[in-house]
Design a protein around this nucleic acid. Structure first.
Lengths: 135, 135
DNA sequence: TACATTTGTAACATATTTTATTACAGTATG
DNA sequence: CATACTGTAATAAAATATGTTACAAATGTA
């Protein structure tokens, strides 16, 4: 469920923020992350769907930020790449004839929802610009 | 990194707490979770290493709680099954010649450390007894 | 004692998820 | 019209998680 999408996406966005006037190619970005360019383009496709970046096809094409980095928060990036954090569920259908099995996922859901609120509140206080300024 | 261990472990502990006077077999527990008994025994081995439960081998054997469930917090369970939550890292070594690649994991670390503090604070306020009483 | 039941653990097998690669059509630049 | 990109699908490989089999060792019970 939790993969490196957030890390990849924030890496991409940090680079775009460092070069606000250039269209960066997926190849260039992939070289900084040390990742396959196709995977970079996939994350960029997601960012485009959320209107965070814009791309230009063809020669000298690439991607650049389409929003003000002081307005974009890590919470929004988090939500774009993961729905939630959590600590997993019983993978198989737990036994519905057991009072615990019957309610376990529901109770875990409630717990994780609260976790997400805490984390969201934290991430909402950090803009891409803030994050980028650490470099 | 993040798997279903927390969910499985808390399910086990909730069951043990519901039957404080019995040694529950891994087979019984597995039946509630709908999981292979060997995997249950593996999580129990971890709990034993932390002195949270005790087991009895042989016929009529099984496992029972060894601590007061009002004193055991979800934070401790969390720490027993995961070191940390997080949103991943660039999997491959990012490019050390790029200012962003060079520091990205370090900056993500700092971010995740803060996330863990928030979540830990939340989980510290919930005992196994509290969680168990929801069923 | 002999048997049944259960833990503990290792070795192996399968399934799932993540990451990588290849390929190529479409688009813009010079 | 050659070059250098994006976009995307199909496939492959690698990593991780989950499941299974097997069996020694322990312990209660007839």
């Amino acid at each position: 469920m939790i993969s490196g999408k957030f890390a990849i996406t924030i890496h991409i966005l940090t680079l775009l923020n460092k070069f606000p006037n250039d269209y960066l190619s997926s190849e260039f970005i992939a070289g900084s992350i040390n990742l396959n360019p196709v995977l970079v383009r996939k994350e960029i496709a997601n960012l485009k769907a959320h209107h965070i970046v814009e791309s230009k096809e063809g020669k000298n094409g690439g991607t650049k930020l389409a929003v003000d980095s002081s307005k974009l928060t890590l919470k929004e990036i988090f939500e774009m790449t993961f729905e939630t954090i959590g600590l997993g569920y019983a993978k198989n259908q737990p036994n519905p004839d057991c009072p615990v099995g019957k309610k376990i996922n529901q109770n875990l859901d409630a717990l994780y929802a609260e976790m997400n609120q805490k984390v969201s509140a934290q991430l909402e206080g950090i803009s891409l610009e803030d994050f980028s300024n650490q470099f």
